[in-house]
């Protein structure tokens, strides 16, 4: 397994380099202009100077090489320096990946966005999973019961109704229609400056997370519960389940130990594959509730043609996707003794 992991990791290096180059090319070919969003009162010759100062005048391979050096060498060195308070060679004038719009290091922006994305999107993923698994198990065990039918309906709704609709619906109900001083009132705008220091502020944090988490959790749960149900149904009809019943095991043991554990194998890998999406943020939901996490950062970057930001963020997502694919494969190997990697 270790050899397998190392081999796979080695393979990912050329893959990721290739991906980074493709992203770079795509962004370069895309018709966007970092000065495009500036007011039209700024004259064209000033725009040209701005583009020059951003380094857009250089040929593409030079710009790609610069980005590679900045991202693969300078940024890791900077992290090391920050962790140990050291100053490895050239820390004074080391060029980091700079966002064009904010003129600040992209990695710092990403680090700043991480908490709210993980809090909201990550929590919604966890909540979604926690809701989805019992629903999937019961739906499969009581196939075609009213519970199953209701679960199917809710999943269909969760799947098909977009989050910008459910999100705005929630805001209209819980932020607009309910009076502000009611206990049922929830803030429609996420306060990213809020700091949890005591019980009351923790309570507020829960309140401001409630709506975005619910909206996203519904969506996540819809997907995962379908997976869970299908996987459970596959396993419920297996012979070993009959064996377990013939052994005289309690139904709970049959269901939770025998069927659930086997059914979770594919579901766990699906969950692992979905984790990069958590880091990617939920672009729409973040916009609706003004969570301003990584998804919103990416969108602003795209809108403003902030190419270094988009490049870096997209590449980090690519790394996460490749990494979690590997993790999913390894998890599969760990969970299913029939799978062996050598």
């Amino acid at each position: 397994m270790l050899n397998y992991t190392i081999r796979r990791l080695m393979f990912t290096i050329p893959v990721l380099l290739f991906i980074s180059f493709i992203i770079f090319l795509l962004l370069d070919l895309a018709p966007n202009d970092p000065t495009g969003n500036l007011p039209m009162t700024i004259p064209p010759e000033v725009r040209e100077k701005i583009r020059e100062s951003l380094g857009l005048g250089q040929p593409i391979h030079v710009r790609y090489f610069k980005w590679c050096v900045q991202f693969f060498v300078n940024e890791p060195l900077n992290i090391i320096d920050q962790m140990f308070g050291t100053c490895t060679w050239g820390c004074e004038d080391r060029l980091r990946v700079q966002s064009w719009a904010t003129r600040s290091p992209v990695v710092d922006l990403i680090v700043e966005r991480m908490p709210q994305t993980l809090w909201v999107v990550g929590m919604s993923y966890v909540v979604g999973i926690l809701i989805a698994i019992p629903i999937g198990v019961i739906s499969a065990y009581r196939q075609y019961s009213w519970f199953d039918q209701a679960g199917t309906f809710v999943s269909m709704v969760g799947f098909s109704v977009p989050t910008f609709f459910t999100g705005v619906l929630m805001i209209v109900i819980f932020s607009v229609m309910i009076p502000t001083d009611s206990w049922f009132w929830f803030p429609s705008i996420y306060d990213t400056t809020h700091k949890v220091t005591d019980l009351a502020s923790f309570g507020f944090q829960i309140r401001q997370m409630a709506m975005p988490v619910f909206v996203l959790a519904l969506y996540n749960a819809a997907q995962i519960s379908r997976f869970m149900r299908a996987s459970m149904l596959d396993n419920l009809n297996q012979d070993y389940v009959r064996t377990a019943r013939a052994k005289g095991m309690r139904e709970r043991v049959v269901l939770l130990v025998h069927v659930l554990r086997n059914s979770l194998i594919p579901v766990v890998t699906v969950i692992a594959l979905g984790v990069p999406q958590v880091f990617g943020g939920a672009i729409i939901t973040e916009q609706v509730f003004k969570v301003n996490g990584l998804g919103q950062l990416l969108i602003i970057g795209i809108q403003g043609a902030d190419i270094p930001l988009v490049q870096t963020l997209t590449f980090i997502f690519a790394v996460l996707i490749v990494l979690f694919n590997l993790i999913a494969d390894i998890l599969y190997g760990i969970l299913d003794p029939r799978i062996r990697y050598d």
Partner: peptide, 13 residues
């Protein structure tokens, strides 16, 4: 506080 994000309709709301 000078908050950003979302869209014009949400800001108006």
């Amino acid at each position: 506080t000078f908050k950003g994000g979302g869209d014009a309709a949400a800001a108006a709301r």
